[in-house]
Design a protein around this nucleic acid. Sequence first.
DNA 1: TGGTCTGTATGCATGTTATACTACAGAAAT
DNA 2: ATTTCTGTAGTATAACATGCATACAGACCA
Lengths: 132, 132
Amino acid sequence: MHTDQQLLLDRLRLESTGVPIYVQLRDQLLSAIGEGRLKPGEQMPTMRQVAVALKVDLNTVRHAYGELERQGAIVIKRAKGTYVAAAPPKTDPDDRAHLIEGLSLRAIAEARSHGIEPAMVARRILKLSKGG
Amino acid sequence: MHTDQQLLLDRLRLESTGVPIYVQLRDQLLSAIGEGRLKPGEQMPTMRQVAVALKVDLNTVRHAYGELERQGAIVIKRAKGTYVAAAPPKTDPDDRAHLIEGLSLRAIAEARSHGIEPAMVARRILKLSKGG
DNA sequence: TGGTCTGTATGCATGTTATACTACAGAAAT
DNA sequence: ATTTCTGTAGTATAACATGCATACAGACCA
């Protein structure tokens, strides 16, 4: 197993906020893909590796991976492993605007719920995304 | 019922992402408090109002409100209603920087996972947050 | 006093989540 | 051929989430 994958596994976190484990895992892996820590065509940690790393049941991990596959983010190959999909799906303009709106509102709400100015988050995003 | 409360109710949204209803509600109400749409000492929408507005069961709303009370964000008074707590807890500067970083990275990742430029999200956040 | 509104509580039913355990089948290496 | 690793599948169990229905008790007002 690559140390890249070990780094990825080390970054997976579970929180007890009432959000199901498979949902947290699904979203964190989607983030890893989205921010290029997992590249198209690259192999992901196996379900068993994730299950061991997070100390959860294999079926729980499978549930998360199953949803990622249904989203088109990954490709699961029986007996071989699981791979990041070759081309992440593009969004069309209408969907895009909705997505931007939703992402923005969510980020704003979350910032404010912690007493943080959303503009500070926005500026940080601009700074980080230029560097990326 | 005040139109303020109606506006608040109108902004509550439920999504089918696998996150339980009570968690979504809890977090959205926490946002409303965090962004000043609900002020310390102010009465919240009643559990029944929220249940009706969101078309969910009273017990589900009660679950969310119960968690907010345990967090110290609200005070529930039997037979009278529910109120925003007098002094919402503050975040200290170290935590703040971490929170901003985390929120930003998460927003970036999610944008990218949908093939969206994070900067577009950032600009939308700036626009929306200025509008109040 | 009666009515209305509020949060509180309970029972039942259904579906979901997560775990543990077991086993199968395919792919690859020895 | 055997072993190891992989995803796939099934079963049973317990806890959780939600809805529905019902009822209680307190607060408030006419």
